[in-house]
Design a protein around this nucleic acid. Structure first.
Lengths: 124, 124
DNA sequence: ATACGATATGCACAATAATACCATTCGAGG
DNA sequence: CCTCGAATGGTATTATTGTGCATATCGTAT
């Protein structure tokens, strides 16, 4: 194994993409988590979409689809009013937000470990 | 938490996609692993591509790119001859093939564990 | 009553990204 | 010199994904 190769291996990083799916269809991943997170912070789907730099159309559609497929209500929506309306997370929405974050963190941690073992083996 | 929701959670499955990247660019993942695997079995890039149902152009391009970026020679190529030519894995190619498989398996195992913890929490 | 701003929703379209398809050259053994 | 895989460059095609636009609904503060 050349010096060159060993140096390259040091610079390699692991990439990961995880999600949850129902009937082969992805329904909850980092995107949805970010959306719930932003809504919780911002108070509305509109503001959340802006904060994430995505169109309202997409944010709304994504959430709608996930809710439909999972049969879960993530948001408490309120239309009208002085501010036009607002959205907040339902208890279930909060639960998904929290537990998914934990799942994600755990996976990331394990991947980092497995990766460092891989690196060690490759250098050997 | 409704009965309906609990039943849904049972049916959810985790999805994963992992890969290795250098300078933000993905260079080795399941696809490349499959390619090395098929070449090892089939004896040529041509046959490997056919076996995987992808175009020779793509198989060749993918490998070429990975080799270039990583500075690793995965294949021992031989052009010409009665059979037109053939390809086999170099020792390094074999090492990547083997160790990546192990890394991948380890990650899958851990994801399955983290996921089942997630399910347990969600049902609670 | 009216205005305002967010939710709700359909649909056509742009922007990529990914992959297939085609054409040509190289190379060595039969 | 014929064959068939390796080696490459172009270009066409497809798939995915998000955007933009138009339109309607809704409820409160003014």
């Amino acid at each position: 194994m050349s010096i060159r190769t060993t140096a390259t291996i040091q610079k390699i990083k692991p990439g990961v993409k995880i999600w949850l799916s129902l009937n082969k269809e992805g329904v909850f991943g980092h995107g949805k988590w970010q959306l719930l997170d932003a809504i919780h912070r911002e108070g509305s789907l509109r503001a959340a979409a802006d904060a994430l730099g995505i169109s309202y159309r997409k944010a709304w559609g994504d959430l709608r689809k996930a809710e439909r497929i999972l049969g879960v209500r993530f948001l408490e929506r309120r239309r009208g009013g002085a501010a036009g309306g607002e959205s907040s997370l339902t208890p279930e929405g909060k639960k998904w937000h929290k537990e998914y974050a934990r799942f994600h963190t755990e996976v990331e941690t394990e991947i980092a470990r497995a990766f460092s073992r891989w690196q060690k083996r490759m250098k050997a």
